[in-house]
Design a protein around this nucleic acid. Structure first.
Lengths: 230, 230
DNA sequence: GCAGGATGATGATTTAGATCAATTAAAAAT
DNA sequence: ATTTTTAATTGATCTAAATCATCATCCTGC
């Protein structure tokens, strides 16, 4: 069982802020069907195409979300970190997962049946608002990414990726990451080789420095310029 | 004023089905702040980056939604046709439009203040469900498109575009369209020239036939195969 | 310690698709 | 009807980025 949520949802220090507006009774309802899970690095939380029964809330670790293409190419569309839940667009539409979720490192999560949350949406307007806000935010990031990936070339896309990681995922610069070059490539919609090459030019131009699994952005304004010029 | 909705929202034959679950009183609330608008082909309904005050419901015509990139490239992310409203992800987040909406042909629309709809979400659970379902569906189409545009090459993307138009937008085959080659290119994430070339190969291979502004898909299974193989 | 699978790094080659340039066709305006 | 504008088409060229191939480094388990 996940240490952070030992005492049940009510006293869980790790609960996602969308649960802030729930009453004790409502939290109990969530608690009663909650399942704690633990994943090792690389393990699949759920897979694209599979039926969705639960909402997944990440209490520790890091999860990447990616779309799997036909020719086993991947596009990472985002990360979910503690404490947040993974938005499942299929829950309201076709009861299917539309992307795969994989743990990037040791990860704990709570699973809650979709019906329970859907009920809360109906009974608690504040919860409904948080929920819609969350979906909207994800739609906006999808739009941002689709714009980056389709309209910029390699340096601009990698700049976007690095800025995204520093500001949105790790909230730190330098940041320590468990992501491989392949992951960086999958985030930027390019091949591993292209990712390595463009990172090298960034290093040569002293825009970034990489020490082992630590990445530091040295010249963010320049990276932003590169992002803007595609 | 829009002919279809002369008698107000209550008797509007053109109302979006998400309004189906509203009471008379609720429909009156919508009615009281409704503004009817008319747009000519090519006119902007709202522009990416501008503040959003209203939800827009299309009562006749057709609207395209596109992301504007830095280097004035465009990516069409969808169409809105009667009777449906344009989902505005910024309404719950940053009060900004994240894409541009342009009328493809003569188009009528009703504008409703965002606050009014947001209120309905809070007071009417059924409405909230329809609303979330709508947002979720759009997120799913964004995911589908991002997968197509990033992981397939030109023929696969154009096949996706043609199938999308026939099955999701015009619901007919053949279909008559006011879209230009540039629009087809913007939908598929390619240049106008590439769009023209790939359409020519499709015509030569007797997968499609184009007569003026009518497009007919002759061999949908083959187009689906092309889509699958990227 | 060493073997062996994963990950990272680089160079050489190929190619899909953009860009550029020019022509034709169709529509709109005068 | 004739000019002007706009959209569609086609070919030639160029280039960004993928692919292919090789080699260097890591870790991880024996």
């Amino acid at each position: 069982m996940n240490k952070l949520s030992n005492g049940g949802c009510l006293h869980c220090k790790a609960k996602s802020d969308i649960f802030d507006h729930l009453s004790e009774e409502e939290l109990d309802r969530v608690e009663s069907c909650r399942v704690s899970m633990h994943y090792r690095a690389g393990e699949i939380v759920f897979k694209q195409g599979s039926p969705c029964y639960d909402f997944v809330c990440i209490t520790s670790g890091l999860v990447k979300l990616y779309i799997e293409g036909e020719n086993d190419r991947r596009l990472i569309i985002g990360f979910v970190k503690p404490v947040d839940y993974i938005f499942v667009p299929g829950a309201y539409v076709d009861k299917r997962h539309h992307y795969t979720a994989v743990a990037c490192e040791e990860t704990s999560a709570c699973l809650v049946e979709t019906e329970v949350l859907q009920n809360l949406v109906n009974t608690n307007p504040e919860f409904a608002n948080s929920f819609i806000k969350k979906i909207s935010s994800q739609a906006i990031s999808l739009i941002t990414q689709i714009a980056s990936v389709t309209q910029k070339q390699i340096p601009g896309r990698m700049a976007d990726t690095l800025i995204y990681l520093a500001t949105k995922v790790y909230n730190s610069n330098p940041f320590i990451t468990s992501l491989s070059r392949q992951d960086l490539a999958d985030l930027s919609g390019m091949t591993k080789e292209s990712a390595i090459r463009v990172l090298k030019t960034f290093k040569d131009d002293e825009l970034i420095v990489i020490r082992g699994d630590e990445i530091e952005l040295l010249n963010i304004p320049m990276l932003e310029t590169i992002s803007r010029n595609g």
